[in-house]
Design a protein around this nucleic acid. Structure first.
Lengths: 134, 134
DNA sequence: GCTTGCAGCTATAGTTACTATAGCATGTAT
DNA sequence: ATACATGCTATAGTAACTATAGCTGCAAGC
């Protein structure tokens, strides 16, 4: 049951990643150029499937393309250390923490504005007043 | 002290918005085309200064260009109601809440991975193991 | 035998919200 | 005279895809 090849449509189904994105990842070098059928269709194997799944998990965790690329290079080269990867991951977690803080601030300010709003049908809106304050 | 005109550099200083962005906002219609000096330099007044400040505040609150445009149209047309603006703002706050939830989930997962990591110099990294799990 | 539909292909453009660059004109300071 | 600062326009670049146009080739239905 190993060693069977499948098309890009099957890879897309297996991973939930749309076809264009798969080809995009190949173009930018995250995925290798796969074998082709006589008709020129891409043929994938389990290795590439797993590699794509790896990429998609790092994507879901908010790593950008270059960060994903670095992870892959570390893995490919086998020259990573646990420490290096942990540092990278912690750094990323900190950035996410900062984003959360910023968004919470936004949320607080938005809710503060709506709190002061009478929600009426008139045109004396305290939200706009706040946005227009000097 | 009113009615004095100033250049784009001054507007930039007053608002903290870089010059290119001001011109960009003009191009996409958020800011009006201002008067020009004999040399063709843009000349701004207090009204445009306040309009730009308004735009920048909505930007800081995470409203995208089209949302900012809608706010401006409501204000320009005078045909807004307090209720409408409140709804718009609350909806936006909800989207931000959702983003915060997603980011918190990311953060938790990242920290969980690093927790299980021995942080050593070896190449048996539990973070990678987690990312590669099937 | 013909058409329709589907899956794949390449190359290219569009998206968001700016940011940066190239190449120009003009005014002021040295 | 020359450098520097500020302004101008038009255009390209950014991130990470997503969508489109126009093509090939296979299989099924009429």
């Amino acid at each position: 049951m190993k060693n069977n090849l499948f098309t890009i449509g099957r890879l897309s189904e297996q991973t939930g990643c749309v076809v264009q994105t798969i080809r995009y990842y190949e173009r930018i070098g995250l995925l290798p150029e796969p074998d082709r059928s006589p008709r020129g269709h891409r043929l994938y194997n389990e290795d590439i499937l797993n590699r794509l799944k790896f990429i998609l998990r790092t994507r879901q965790l908010g790593f950008n393309i270059e960060e994903r690329r670095t992870f892959l290079e570390l893995v490919d080269g086998g020259k990573y250390t646990c420490h290096k990867i942990r540092q990278k991951t912690l750094l990323h977690a900190q950035e996410i923490k900062r984003k959360i803080r910023d968004l919470k601030k936004m949320e607080r300010e938005l809710l503060k504005m709506t709190d002061q709003c009478n929600d009426g049908s008139g045109t004396d809106c305290s939200i706009l007043a706040t946005l227009f304050r000097n």
